[in-house]
């Protein structure tokens, strides 16, 4: 596993995507899969910045990526407020333009783009979100 720590700020999303994308490529993924893994990691990091560290300027996200038994994992650790993505309300995809909800979309995409999603929270310590893409 390779690990890097990033300031929890939107202007670091470019670097987060680059780190995750490079690791995915080194582990045998290409084209569309790399894009989708980057998108899922971006959505996860964006949610951490927006919700776990809401209003906090000095938050940090630790990201580890690596392959184990044909499963590529992206593990995001934060030290902010816990938020279990499996409890997020799902967007109503059949609602018309006026009624379409704007929230929850990022989490919905994470579940669609990745094969497995796990969340673990140690209250007052850290939260760990694990995203897994299986190698075909």
């Amino acid at each position: 596993m390779q690990t890097l720590r990033f300031p929890a700020r939107f202007d670091y999303l470019d670097e987060i995507r680059e780190f995750v994308g490079n690791s995915a490529r080194q582990n045998g993924f290409d084209g569309k899969d790399v894009y989708n893994i980057q998108l899922a990691a971006d959505e996860a990091a964006s949610n951490i910045i927006e919700h776990a560290y809401k209003g906090k300027a000095d938050g940090e996200i630790q990201i580890s990526c690596g392959l184990e038994a044909e499963r590529f994992a992206v593990v995001l650790v934060d030290y902010g407020k816990s938020f279990d993505p499996s409890h997020a309300p799902l967007p109503n995809l059949s609602a018309d333009l006026a009624k379409r909800r704007i929230g929850g979309l990022g989490i919905f995409l994470i579940y669609k783009l990745m094969d497995e999603v796990y969340y673990q929270s140690n209250p007052d310590k850290s939260n760990t979100l694990t995203l897994v893409k299986r190698r075909a």
């Binding site: 959505e43 964006s46 333009l97 379409r100 704007i102 979309l105 990022g106």
Partner: peptide
């Protein structure tokens, strides 16, 4: 090159306003 759900949301808001 790239668009996340943040961009999708901006599109949705613009479509609502334009319509």
């Amino acid at each position: 090159e790239y668009m996340s759900s943040a961009g999708f949301r901006a599109l949705l808001a613009a479509q609502r306003a334009a319509k």
